[in-house]
């Protein structure tokens, strides 16, 4: 009985030690993942911001290129339509 108790104690000590090490590793792993994800979020955030700025810049560039003054200038040789010269067919 006594030897059984001693063996059980030994097993219990070992199990506790192993469980503690395992949980510690798990917690460290999860925390590192959190930190990495946070880092990813802030990277994503700055990338989104730079893409938005780039989108905005390209949009402005587009409207600069198609502004009516420029289109008008480039189509000066085209014939101007008059309302009595158009056939209004649906």
């Amino acid at each position: 009985m006594k030897s059984l108790l001693v063996k059980f104690c030994l097993v219990a000590y070992l199990f506790t030690l192993v469980a503690f090490v395992f949980l510690a590793i798990k917690v460290i792993d999860v925390r590192s993942k959190c930190t990495r994800e946070r880092h990813n979020i802030s990277n994503l955030f700055s990338k989104t911001k730079s893409l938005k700025d780039e989108n905005s810049r390209l949009l402005i560039e587009f409207y600069r290129e198609v502004r009516p003054g420029l289109v008008d200038k480039n189509t000066q040789k085209m014939e101007i339509l008059h309302e009595n010269g158009v056939k209004y067919l649906k």
Binding site: T35, R38, H39, I41, S42, F45, T48, K49
Partner: peptide, 13 residues
């Protein structure tokens, strides 16, 4: 000195 933001950051922006 690198800042790590959380998910709430994108909502604010």
């Amino acid at each position: 000195g690198r800042v790590y933001l959380g998910t709430n950051a994108t909502l604010f922006v």
